[in-house]
Amino acid sequence: MPGQQELQVQQKREVEKAQEATRPMRAFLPNTDIFETEDTLTLVLEMPGVDRENIDLNVENGVLTVEGRIDFNKYAGLQPVYSEYNVGPYRRSFRISGMIDQDKITAELSDGVITLVLPKAERAKPRRIAIG
């Protein structure tokens, strides 16, 4: 049953490069839940260590891109001795098509989790079809 099992570590997946990056830095895919209600599509992304001001949301050509940068200054003076996970920016893109009202997307950050609520455009909402 979900919620009852013991939590397992999820290895971070690296962003697969669509283009060759000019910087050797690694970026990671945030673990994401997506669910839909009648009126909205909700995306929930885990980006631990990302501050509110370091999140970029961008919609271009029907693609929503979420980017979270890590402030590495917080690690200044810290010398790693033992590591189980790597640290780097998060990046993920979603094709959202015309069903979303792009001007009304809202975002909320809490405990390293960003929740994006994407309201559906009027014409994309489900309609009950009466049988004539």
């Binding site: 919620g3 009852q4 013991e6 939590l7 999820q10 839940d33 997506i34 669910f35 209600t37």
Partner: peptide, 15 residues
């Protein structure tokens, strides 16, 4: 009443 499209986040107990 949601339809879940994608579920990658895990929940549960840890110790």
């Amino acid at each position: 009443d949601v339809s879940l499209h994608r579920r990658e986040r895990l929940s549960g107990a840890f110790d």
